[in-house]
């Protein structure tokens, strides 16, 4: 840098000093800050990059695997749970169907029993005279009892 530039710079610095004057405490704090940033930057700049890169890659890999495992476990357990639900639902449907079938059978049996009893009451018409005789006997017995009384 030429002497003239240096002179211009110092002049500009003088003007800046007026506009942006720093008290000793502020100056000390800014010096500390600058030195702190410089030492941090130097340490970060000279750190072993490969090691850091491989450590990051390892972390990424581990995170990827963990996420993958969680996803697979989620998918599997979700599938199993879904299947279980489906099976339970199918069993419930089968049970309901079975119950309905039983109820239908019972209804059919009752109907058949009713029909049987109706038929059994209607069919013995051939034996009607005998039934009339029994009815007459019963009425005779009851009138006899009444007379005796």
């Amino acid at each position: 840098m030429s002497f003239k530039n240096e002179l211009d710079r110092s002049q500009a610095g003088g003007e800046d000093h007026d506009a942006l004057a720093l008290d000793p405490a502020l100056k000390a704090a800014l010096d500390n800050f600058r030195q702190s940033v410089h030492s941090w930057s130097e340490a970060a700049y000279n750190r072993p990059r490969m090691q850091v890169a491989s450590r990051r890659r390892l972390w990424r890999l581990a995170t990827g695997w963990a996420l993958g495992c969680v996803l697979v476990a989620g998918a599997v357990s979700g599938g199993v749970y879904g299947r279980h639900l489906k099976q339970a639902r199918a069993e419930a449907v089968l049970e309901a169907e079975h119950q309905r079938q039983l109820a239908a059978d019972r209804e059919a049996e009752e109907l058949m029993a009713d029909v049987d009893s109706d038929i059994s009451r209607q069919v013995p018409s051939a034996m009607e005279p005998l039934a009339q005789l029994m009815a007459e006997d019963e009425s005779n017995i009851s009138t006899g009892k009444k007379k005796r009384n």
């Binding site: 010096d31 500390n32 030195q35 702190s36 940033v37 030492s39 941090w40 340490a43």
Partner: peptide, 8 residues
């Protein structure tokens, strides 16, 4: 960030 102290 403030851990890095000036060496002086």
């Amino acid at each position: 960030a403030s851990e890095w102290l000036p060496s002086g």
